[in-house]
């Protein structure tokens, strides 16, 4: 992929640059930030995440598999009734189900995050600048070789401290 990687000192310049790329109908730009910032995420169109759905699925899977597993283990010895208590007593099993629900939901959230973040980084190889984790912002704009100079100039106008071709 050919593109321009512009580095900004201030968040406001990055927001202006994102607006500029949108105005020029450049699609697929990737914004970089040193910290979570809702304004940058909104401007960059990063508004949804699959992590919540996977977490919900993990929670349901954890709770249902815990209930199924505990009931199945108890039914291995169906005659083992102690003190006339019901063989399958739901209150204690719900405790196990609750804990497993949390455990699997949390694991699903983490795995979904790692997978989604890995996918989000795809196509940015070689563009990353170490100053981006410190205090600077970045914008990676995919464009053909013919538009590199034009986009680069536009980024400088928006306040980019530097830009390079990637």
């Amino acid at each position: 992929m050919t593109g321009v990687m512009a580095i900004f000192e201030r968040r406001d310049d990055l927001l202006a640059a994102i607006a500029e790329t949108n105005a020029r109908r450049v699609r697929g730009a990737t914004a970089f930030a040193p910290a979570f910032d809702e304004r940058v995420l909104q401007a960059a169109g990063a508004t949804t995440s699959p992590v919540a759905s996977w977490t919900l699925a993990g929670g349901i899977a954890g709770a249902s598999s815990a209930l199924a597993f505990t009931v199945w283990t108890i039914r291995q010895w169906p005659t083992l009734i102690v003190s006339g208590k019901p063989l399958i007593a739901w209150p204690p099993l719900l405790i196990i189900a609750f804990e497993l629900m949390i455990l699997v939901a949390a694991a699903a959230a983490m795995i979904a995050f790692l997978a989604a973040a890995r996918r989000a980084r795809r196509g940015t190889r070689g563009a990353y600048d170490p100053s981006l984790s410190d205090a600077r912002f970045g914008l990676l704009i995919p464009c053909g070789p013919a538009r590199v100079a034009e986009i680069g100039e536009a980024m400088t106008t928006c306040g980019a401290v530097t830009w390079r071709v990637v």
């Binding site: 930030a33 960059a44 169109g45 990063a46 508004t47 949804t48 989604a116 973040a117 940015t124």
Partner: peptide, 9 residues
């Protein structure tokens, strides 16, 4: 790398 999508996730 701190892309906007990474921060969202």
């Amino acid at each position: 790398t701190g892309t906007a999508a990474e921060w969202r996730h």
